[in-house]
Simulated scan of single mutants.
Amino acid sequence: MIETYYIGAYWGARKEDAEACARRLATLVQLLAPVDPLFASWFKGSKSLKQSLTRPLELELSSLQKYIQRNLMRDDRRQPMEDLGFNLGLWNGRQGGNDAWLSIGCGGYWEQVSNRCVLRAPDEGPGSERVLTTAFQTQALRALATAWDPDWGAAVSNVHRDIIEKKSPDIWVGWVTYLSRRLGRVPPLPAPVRIEPVEDQGTLILLTPELFTASNPEHVALAERVRELLDRAGLLKARPAQPSKL
């Protein structure tokens, strides 16, 4: 089975207006740009990819703010649902010959809302050899974490996610995992696991220096061991995110 991967950052209810979300989005785009040529440009989601190419994402704050405001969640009668926040999608315009996508839900403050930023980069084709490395996954997740200040995040394969979900955790431990300092302090972890700080916001946990695959029993066993240690330390229960500034 071919494993496909994605990188996601998630946080609970946090009321932020279109301007605050625009600032975070601008920060994300700026941080992703040096990670890989795939992220050189972004285009606003449209009914077709051809139409998207006519709608480049402009990083000037007022333009970003207007764009995000237009993507406020609405009900069936087109009435605004401010507590659900904003929802938008971006495409990289097939930079470097391959696709990348961003799916973002931000500013939601209904108690049951789950804000998110999910990055899908190519698993095959041009650029995939760079994407499927610990360095790429770590740098991309670091960018998401720095920009959005989520509760947690993970670079994970879909196959491994399905294994994880059987245990019904609030937080997944993936190939690379991010935990906000709001959740607590990361305990010592076994080799070859590495941990890296993300400024004063949280911690990245890197399970393996090589490509993590769910078809490798040693990889899955290591992920489970780390999950147990983090769970024992009380870090795998998601808590409401607190408002914070960039």
Rank of each mutant, 00 (worst) to 15 (best):
W42C: 02
R55M: 11
G45F: 03
R74G: 02
Y6G: 12
Y6K: 13
R77M: 12
M73W: 11
I7N: 02
L72C: 08
A18K: 03
R70H: 14
R14H: 10
R74S: 06
Y10A: 08
Y5C: 06
K50Y: 06
Q65W: 06
R23P: 00
A22Y: 05
T54G: 11
A26M: 06
F43V: 08
T27K: 10
S52I: 05
D83E: 14
Q51W: 00
P80D: 01
S46W: 00
E60R: 04
R55I: 02
W42P: 01
A22Q: 05
D76Q: 14
L64M: 05
A20P: 00
A33S: 12
Y5A: 07
Y10Q: 10
C21H: 02
P34K: 04
S63H: 11
R55A: 13
G45V: 05
R77P: 00
D83C: 08
D17E: 08
L49T: 14
A26S: 11
L72G: 06
S48T: 15
Y10L: 11
K15S: 14
S63C: 08
G8Y: 11
Q30K: 14
S63K: 12
M81S: 01
R77A: 13
S41V: 10
I7T: 10
G45W: 06
W42A: 06
Q51R: 06
E58H: 09
A33H: 15
S46H: 09
S52Y: 03
M81W: 04
L72S: 03
R14Y: 01
C21F: 03
S41A: 15
I7A: 02
E58V: 14
C21M: 07
R70Y: 10
Q79P: 02
S63G: 00
K50G: 15
E19I: 11
T27A: 12
E3W: 08
E3Q: 12
W11Y: 10
D75P: 09
Q51N: 05
S41P: 00
P37I: 05
Q30W: 07
D75K: 06
T54F: 01
